[in-house]
Nucleic acid binder design. Structure first.
Lengths: 333, 333
DNA sequence: TTGAAAGCGTTACCAA
DNA sequence: TTGGTAACGCTTTCAA
């Protein structure tokens, strides 16, 4: 049983102290730029540290300083511009509090989400984001951590969630279409979950509020290509449709592209209204009319609620945990 | 001088132990799902923990377990799609190693970058990303941490950097324009740094390699609006320009928009070639021809090099620390 | 199945 | 200006 041990042992402050011929505290002082230390001593310590390749343990440091907070931000796909915006907002809100944000991209895979949650508990003080696992499983994996869900209901006491209140905005969108003379309005819903989305319900409600029959619906993957395919499908089945409302802006952008390729000019031959209010929407041609969400609010609220949960101060009420949406008129409708 | 102390003291494992009438280790066992514990004891401990709102200290845990690595990813602006792509790639590469990534968005402000670097040293094991501070300052702030710079030269021994090799790609782009008959080719460079960018040099070199005089140049802010303004300026000063190469895709997209508003049809009246190869480029109209960078490689290489620096294994050589770029023909040129 | 003791690597607080 | 000692909160031996 020789002395080889398991891998190169970590270089600790004691190694540096020994090598520089001083005590630990002196090393600590040198490294943390404290005053109470001689210049030459300091230099000697710094040299020794460098020579040994010493790096302080952030855990030991954090343990004694107890002054940093990190939140884990879990998102399905950072490349999806919607999540990018939410993430950016969350980073902003966290920075304002001097919090650190550990970002996890699950790539929309449940196993990854599970893996992330498994490992997250020992790395952060709170979890915020888009989770798709069942609540009891989340509960088990995050035992003890505050959890703030975005755009998802929750029943478990421990969790909080940020609601999206889009009904108003969707109404406004449909009303706008109707006022422009549209009667046959379709929807491109998302395809991933089994049941129709809440946004679909809002659409239905808005349609009947405007005295229209339920509109035709196609289901689209959450991608530009998905939107493209879905619009083609919808128009094939219902050629008389003159306007579409989509589950989100990404799908709407796909629809825009499909329309162009089908020779339908937007908005003249087909009006398109998206949902989300992505910046991206203003770059495409024609710029996308959309039901714009307060994405910044989404990220900020989530972080704010995490903060309250963490400090045991009065958490935000259910009423406050919501962001609104309003119709943003551009050129596609 | 009462006993109020400073804020509510942290609930520790000892509090739980006391409350449940067991020892610390038993609490530890219950919380970590170990076997050596009675069912009823375990439940009692769990209940106590819940009641007290106990959350294990990740620092104490990390100190003992020493098994997690985090890198800090510093980027100027997550909402800039280019950085989003790099970030996503870095997250991917990190996940493959089971590393955690703490993301910092400096909002392109040096003070924020400084603030971030100040605080980062005690939070992560390595730093990766886009930094704009002078090397000596970075050196001071990150003392001891491995640092991998992206798209920036370095002189300091301690640092590594990932180089972008775009010369080939830019040559191909200009050659392509020349073959299409263009002779008056302009460039939209970025405006932020004082001296012309390397991409500008590549452009000049490519121009002269094709036997052309130096092209007209305008400087653009790193935004769609910036690109728009810059193209207007360029065309105002040099109306005979028939093609532009831009510092990046964002600026190119602005140019596309400006061209449309000026009534110049792309590519018929004006050819546009960007740089970066953003996904976004394929969504605009017309889809953007661009010198596409291997963004995934950028993020992945940075993380890979950080890993080598961290484990003291053979770091990647300068030759390996580069990503290439190739002309991606779409419709704008 | 449970508990006592010994670390993990650092900084804070005194005393020298 | 320096060093000794005591935390910080947890997990891992090893004994009971």
């Amino acid at each position: 049983m020789a002395s080889s041990g398991s891998g190169p042992r970590r270089v600790t402050i004691d190694d540096v102290a020994r090598s520089a011929g001083v005590s630990r505290q002196t090393v600590s002082r040198a490294l943390n730029d404290k005053d109470e230390i001689g210049v030459s001593t300091k230099q000697r310590v710094l040299d020794a540290a460098l020579a040994l390749g010493y790096r302080p343990s952030r855990f030991a440091r954090g343990l004694v300083r107890q002054d940093t907070i990190s939140v884990g931000l879990v998102i399905p796909d950072l490349l999806n511009p919607f999540f990018t915006e939410v993430a950016a907002a969350a980073l902003d809100a966290a920075r304002a509090r001097e919090w650190h944000v550990v970002v996890y991209d699950t790539g929309d895979r449940v196993e990854e989400e599970r893996g992330t949650l498994e490992v997250i508990a020992s790395q952060v003080d709170a979890v915020v984001g888009y989770l798709s696992l069942p609540e009891d499983e989340i509960d088990k994996l995050t035992r003890g951590l505050p959890v703030v869900l975005i755009d998802r209901e929750h029943r478990t006491e421990r969790f909080s969630s940020i609601r999206i209140e889009g009904e108003e905005g969707v109404h406004a969108a449909i009303r706008h279409l109707v006022e422009a003379g549209h009667r046959r309005i379709g929807m491109l819903d998302h395809a991933e979950r089994s049941k129709p989305s809440i946004r679909h319900h809002w659409f239905d409600a808005a349609m009947s509020a405007c005295g229209l029959d339920a509109g035709a619906v196609s289901r689209a993957d959450q991608s530009v290509e998905g939107g493209e395919a879905a619009l083609r499908e919808l128009l094939a089945a219902h050629p008389d449709v003159t306007a579409v409302f989509t589950f989100n802006d990404i799908i709407a952008i796909g629809a825009l592209r499909a329309a162009r390729r089908l020779g339908r000019e937007v908005p003249r031959d087909l009006a398109v209204i998206g949902f989300d209010g992505l910046r991206l929407g203003s770059l495409v041609e024609p710029p996308l009319t959309t039901v714009a969400l307060d994405t910044r609010g989404l990220g900020a609220l989530a972080v704010e609620q995490a903060a309250r949960l963490l400090t045991r101060s009065e958490p935000l009420s259910s009423d406050e945990l919501a962001v609104g949406a309003e119709l943003r008129l551009r050129e596609s409708a």
